[in-house]
Amino acid sequence: MLLPAKAEVARHLERYRAWERLLLAAPADHVVRGNFENTGYTLCVLMGKRCAREAADAAEHYLRGASSVARARGSQGRGPSRAAGTCP
């Protein structure tokens, strides 16, 4: 499965959270709501989810998981491992 670039996911997640904060501050602002919905849609497409909240959670997990796996492997002194059935 192809995964999106981490920098791209981080950038869109940051935008989503910024528009979310603005929407909470001004729920009647139609421009803010439209931008919030657009960023949510983009995050859904990137993460392969149907709900913006699920996409944001998946993006956070994706970004957090990559750094924690790298730290765990580095502390154990092992290189990257391959999952069964993946290309070399």
Rank of each mutant, 00 (worst) to 15 (best):
M1Y: 06
R21K: 15
G40K: 01
P80S: 09
R15P: 01
S68T: 03
L13I: 06
S75W: 06
G79N: 13
A55I: 01
A5Q: 12
A10L: 11
H12E: 13
R71P: 00
H12I: 08
Y41S: 13
R82V: 09
A66Y: 10
L46F: 04
A59H: 00
C51S: 08
R73W: 06
F36I: 00
L63M: 06
Y41W: 12
E54N: 14
Y16Q: 00
L3D: 09
Y41L: 14
S81K: 11
L24T: 08
L13A: 06
L24C: 07
E54F: 01
M47F: 01
E8C: 08
P4Q: 11
M1V: 13
R82H: 13
A25D: 14
Y62H: 09
R71Y: 08
L46M: 06
A25L: 15
R64Q: 04
G77W: 01
S75P: 00
G74Q: 08
K6F: 09
R82M: 12
G79A: 14
P4R: 05
A70C: 05
R71F: 05
K6W: 03
V69I: 05
Y41G: 03
A7E: 15
C87T: 14
A5P: 06
V45G: 05
A84L: 13
V9N: 09
H61G: 06
Y41Q: 09
V69R: 14
R17E: 08
A28E: 15
A28Y: 11
N35S: 12
R64E: 07
G34D: 09
G65Q: 13
A18T: 04
E8I: 12
E37H: 00
G40A: 01
V9I: 15
A70L: 08
R71K: 08
G40V: 01
A84T: 11
S67K: 15
A84G: 10
A18W: 04
R82I: 07
N35K: 14
C44I: 03
G79T: 11
G79R: 09
P80R: 10
H12V: 13
L22S: 12
L3E: 09
S68K: 03
A59K: 08
S67G: 01
L43N: 02
R73D: 03
V45K: 13
L2N: 03
R33D: 05
A56E: 01
T39M: 03
L63W: 00
D57M: 08
R17N: 01
A25G: 14
R33A: 15
R50K: 12
T39V: 00
E54K: 01
E37G: 04
